[in-house]
Amino acid sequence: ELSPGQLALLKHIVDSYDKHRIPQDMTKRLLQDQYSTEENFLLLTEMATSHVQVLVEFTKNIPGFQALDHEDQIALLKGSAVEAMFLRSAQMFTRKLPHGHPDVLEERIRKSGISEEFITPMFNFYKSIGELQMVQEEHALLTAIAILSPDRPYVKDQEAVEHLQEPVLEILDKFCKLHHPEDPQHFARLLGRLTELRTLNHHHSEMLLSWRVN
């Protein structure tokens, strides 16, 4: 079972994850009208910016984060922003959206000018997240774990970051054992998604470049 301290940390992280989302009026705009490729680009850029702001607010609320070296905080956020964004959008795609909405969203992304070679792995990732049928707690914890990765470039005090990441990993491990007794590999599968995210992150700068060229 989760200890009282672990339960409190879990609740804190999940509450913060729930609280900090992209504003609804922005997500609603995704589903409205037809946009030109240029408008699509601007809207997705605006959403990406909003996502980063939301991510930072979520991260500030992770106990201990703000006590880290300031430049290490920036290195962690820079290293994980893209991964956290893919995780959030995967959640959006796998949630039960009103009829037709996922299609509108998918079409908008496909028409954004991003080349097919990057789109396919992205939707494959969304599918692989969908297969895990993750609950909100798992999304929040996995996001926190991705952010608190000590091996990001330019992190000076890796030990301090490890010290924050380890308790979150332990909670996720226990949470998986409690909620997926039928699948002892569930925790390992979740961590496997972090590896997929690293690959997507790696290709992201290439993707942005091709997007701009298009």
Partner: peptide, 21 residues
Amino acid sequence: PASNLGLEDIIRKALMGNFED
């Protein structure tokens, strides 16, 4: 506008709380 800022600028501003204002 935020869309003209790089990732690091957005992070720095958000850490300082400037976006909330």
